[in-house]
């Protein structure tokens, strides 16, 4: 603050000659509605755990309600953005999204910290009584998921060059590869659970395995939903060279999910022995 001073002190003061571009953000019911929905979902999860009758039905209703509130909010933003500075709001949203991904990344960091701490403090790895995990299938799944990052990139590239059909095809391929990945993960889980008897409660190691792959799988699912939404909007022709913020967001999210998986693959499958 060494040399800060006001260029024109009088102008800063609230006067009657207000700046024509002055706007205050519109009031909105969505924040409180969504917060209530999220609170209800969390509380109902608790009631379902307690086994309260009808809690499951209420939970489903609350989830539905929360989704409606979220999309209502998203819709309001989309409408508002038509009257706002696109470049600036895109910059804001992108930056906010990156910070969000940073905090998401830190959740994974806590799980990796768990995994590596256990690994370096225990005498055997995998711990005694735990199977060594088969690598071939996950390796193929890894290739597919990493490949889908490239196909998504090509989809975005095609769209930015006006090749809308190619973009849609690449997008479909990306979604298909994502679904394949999830399917393979499901198969892997089934195999571990059913054949090897390696379940969530076998031991701390298996708990970590299922938590990490499960949490990641949930992220893949969310990513797929985002991609599906993007594809739907592509079909409607809503994107062009300038206006494709949600496409970018979905792209970053998908790359994030991919990068996390690469770390998971290395930590859980590739380097299993000390």
């Amino acid at each position: 603050m060494e040399h800060a001073s006001l260029a024109s002190p009088a102008a800063a003061h609230a006067g009657m000659h207000a700046d024509p571009s002055a706007h205050t953000p519109a009031p909105s019911f969505w924040p409180i509605l969504l917060a209530g929905g999220m609170g209800a979902v969390v509380f109902l999860v608790f009631l379902v755990y307690l086994g309260v009758p009808l809690a499951g039905v209420l939970l489903a209703a609350a989830v539905l309600y929360t989704l409606v509130a979220a999309s209502g909010w998203a819709n309001t933003i989309a409408v508002e953005r038509r009257h706002m500075d696109q470049v600036q709001t895109n910059k804001d949203l992108t930056r906010g999204f990156f910070f969000f991904l940073a905090s998401e990344g830190m959740i994974f960091v806590s799980y990796f910290e768990y995994l590596y701490y256990s690994r370096f403090t225990s005498a055997h790895w995998p711990p005694a009584g735990m199977p060594t995990l088969e690598t071939t299938l996950p390796a193929i799944a890894t290739l597919i998921l990493v490949g889908s990052s490239f196909t998504l990139n090509w989809a975005v590239h095609a769209l930015l060059h006006g090749k809308k059909t190619a973009a849609k095809n690449w997008m479909l391929l990306t979604i298909a590869m994502g679904i394949t990945f999830l399917g393979m993960q499901g198969f892997e889980w089934g195999f571990l659970n059913g054949v090897l008897g390696f379940t969530l409660t076998t031991g701390a190691y298996s708990s970590a395995y299922f938590l990490m792959t499960g949490f990641h799988g949930a992220h893949v699912t969310v990513g797929l939903l985002m991609l599906a939404l993007v594809y739907w909007r592509m079909e409607k022709g809503e994107y062009n060279q300038q206006y494709h913020m949600s496409l970018k967001a979905a792209e970053y999210y998908w790359h994030f999910v991919d990068i996390v998986w690469v770390f998971l693959f290395f930590s859980l499958y590739l380097f299993q022995s000390h």
């Binding site: 959740i107 960091v109 969530l200 409660t201 076998t202 701390a204 708990s207 970590a208």
Partner: peptide
């Protein structure tokens, strides 16, 4: 987020019988 991660594992130990913080399960 690290707290959330740690608490999520704690909740899973409580609800799903996982073994994150239970010595008996390693």
């Amino acid at each position: 987020p690290v707290l959330s991660g740690a608490l999520f594992m704690l909740l899973s130990d409580r609800w799903l019988n996982t073994g994150f913080y239970r010595p008996a399960l390693g």
